[in-house]
Design a protein around this nucleic acid. Structure first.
Length: 481
RNA sequence: GGCGCCGUCGCCAAGUGGUAAGGUCCGGGACUGCAAAUCCUGUAUACGUCGGUUCGAAUCCGACCGGCGCCUCCA
């Protein structure tokens, strides 16, 4: 039996922070709404994926084994619109499907590159919608048999009024029927709230054959069908951006629970938006930065990762380059401290005796760090505990140098924390013969009080991305930035 | 119009009833050939405004102001 620490997380379903309950002890089945691959992801999308990464890492570090499934939406209106450009009106369906696949493959590749650059842990499964048409068709059939769906002109719709708990997640009041008044619906549904499960194909659109004629799945059904196939009939955790609460997640619940006849997802969790210049980012507004845009400006993806991870996932966050600089400086502080702990210990340094020594302070910080993360992923508070420890131990080490053992314990904790933040190295820096030689030459120049030559060498070394630090004993340390 | 979120030091941000964590930036000092790193240090009488509840409120209640989101595709 695994031992694990409870993790509390805000549940959109209950609007409360509550401990994650798993269907199977110690094992979290987690489903995340992934990208719609009709363009490169913008940094707002990436914030959501970073939130899911944070959640997974905290769960893993707390002793849970996480089975994670993230879908790739590779069929949808915009994908069809943008992928069919250049095809002759007479093109046949297999050409159209192939063209669409080429189009989505391109953006899917970029998506995975972004995940890698941001050190987002891969999911166990990345099912694609177009690979699961039969599963979706089967699920729609089930809903029709249960009288929760109906056919209209080659399309199939979910009958919302017959799913009694509809609106439980988004708290939408179905009693408000004013919206029906001006209903002049293009799809001829029974009710405006009804949503499409299967969309009849229009001319010159790629399609799949179905019992209801040629068409393609509606947007919501893929998550219900693939989640069920991959993770089963009881999902512990389902996550996505806050905008997916309605209608997407509400509709997923309707479809899945309509079929299963029992609750499907225990814990729903949603990440807040990222704003840029206090405005919502969206692909349709065209005001978005991609990760590549940042990299082209010389920004390290890790700095972006850290900036996002140091803010609470349920709070609106305004992206700024100033914030990025602050994040970079914060990371440097931790890296500097880590390097200090790696330095060799002088002869005869013993460990602290009595209370309030470095290990006591370390343990205090460690407890606060994990408690904050396990309390609804409170990263700002977790990092505050870490920074406080860094300041505290820097000052203490100035007065009473740490022993080798003490430093080793501190490094272990930094490695532990890095399992979440992935922002500082966990291995010793490598050495380099050429740099070593230049540093020796500079030390000699310093001894000769040849400051000009000493500064020359330092500039040369710095241009290689290396920083020098002179020490009291006339030696010099160097490391890569 | 309906539902909901947010407003804490220049910037970021924790704290949600007991008397304002932390980071960053900027200034002063120590150390230093100069840097870098590190340390020390620099009045948040104060949490959008106004009222209320309370022995006590940034934290609860009400009103108002400001910003934002969802209700249609959206991370």
């Amino acid at each position: 039996m695994n031992s694990y620490q409870p993790v509390a997380l805000y549940n959109t379903l209950t609007r409360k922070v509550e401990a994650i309950k798993t269907y199977e002890p110690g094992k979290v089945r987690m489903y995340s709404c992934g990208p719609t691959v009709y363009n490169v992801a913008h940094i707002g999308n990436l914030r959501t994926f970073l939130f899911q990464d944070l959640l997974k890492r905290v769960l893993s570090a707390s002793g849970f084994s996480v089975l994670h499934c993230m879908n790739i939406t590779d069929v949808e209106d915009k994908i069809i619109r943008d992928s069919q450009v250049g095809l002759a009106p007479t093109a046949n369906n297999s050409d159209r499907l192939m063209k669409m696949r080429e189009f989505t493959d391109h953006f899917t590749r970029i998506f995975f590159q972004d995940l890698e650059a941001l050190r987002i842990l891969p999911a166990n499964f990345y099912p694609k919608a177009t690979d699961h048409i039969p599963e979706m068709v089967a699920m729609i059939n089930e809903l029709i048999q249960k009288n929760l769906a109906y056919l209209r002109e080659g399309s199939v719709y979910f009958r919302v009024k017959d799913f009694k708990s509809y609106g439980q997640l988004s708290r939408i009041d179905l009693g408000d029927s004013t919206s029906e008044i001006d209903d002049r619906d293009e799809y001829d549904r029974e009710h405006v709230r009804d949503f499409v499960l299967w969309k009849a194909a229009k001319p010159a659109e790629p399609y799949w054959d179905s019992p209801w004629g040629p068409g393609r799945p509606g947007w919501h059904i893929e998550c219900s069908a693939m989640g069920r196939k991959v993770l089963g009939e009881h999902i512990d955790l389902h996550s996505g951006g806050i905008d997916l609460i309605f209608p997407h997640h509400e509709n997923e619940i309707a479809q899945s629970e309509g079929c299963l006849g029992h609750p499907w997802v225990t814990h729903w969790t949603h990440g807040e938006f990222l704003l840029v210049q206090n405005e919502k980012m969206s692909k349709s507004l065209g005001n978005f930065y991609s990760l590549k845009d940042l990299v082209d400006q010389g920004i390290d993806p890790i700095h972006f990762r850290f900036m996002i991870q140091s803010n609470h996932y349920r709070k609106l966050f305004n992206f700024s380059f100033e914030g990025l600089r602050a994040s970079k400086a914060s990371i440097e502080r931790i890296r500097n401290f880590r390097r200090r702990m790696e330095e060799p210990t002088s002869e005869g340094i013993a460990s602290w005796e009595g209370p309030l020594g470095p290990l006591d302070r370390l343990n205090h910080a460690r407890n606060e760090f994990w408690a904050a993360l396990r309390d609804d992923l409170n990263t700002p508070e977790a990092l505050a505990a870490l920074y406080t420890m860094v300041s505290d131990l820097n000052a203490l080490d100035d007065r009473v140098p740490f022993s080798f053992l003490e430093k080793q314990h501190i490094i272990l904790f930094l490695n532990e924390a890095n399992q979440i933040f992935e922002a500082w190295p966990t291995v010793l820096a490598e050495s380099d013969q050429e740099i070593e030689a230049l540093v020796k030459e500079r030390i000699q120049a310093k001894k000769n009080k040849d400051w000009k030559r000493a500064d020359e060498i330092r500039n040369q070394i710095q241009s290689l991305g290396i920083t020098l630090e002179d020490t009291r004993d006339g030696q010099s340390k160097w490391f890569r930035r």
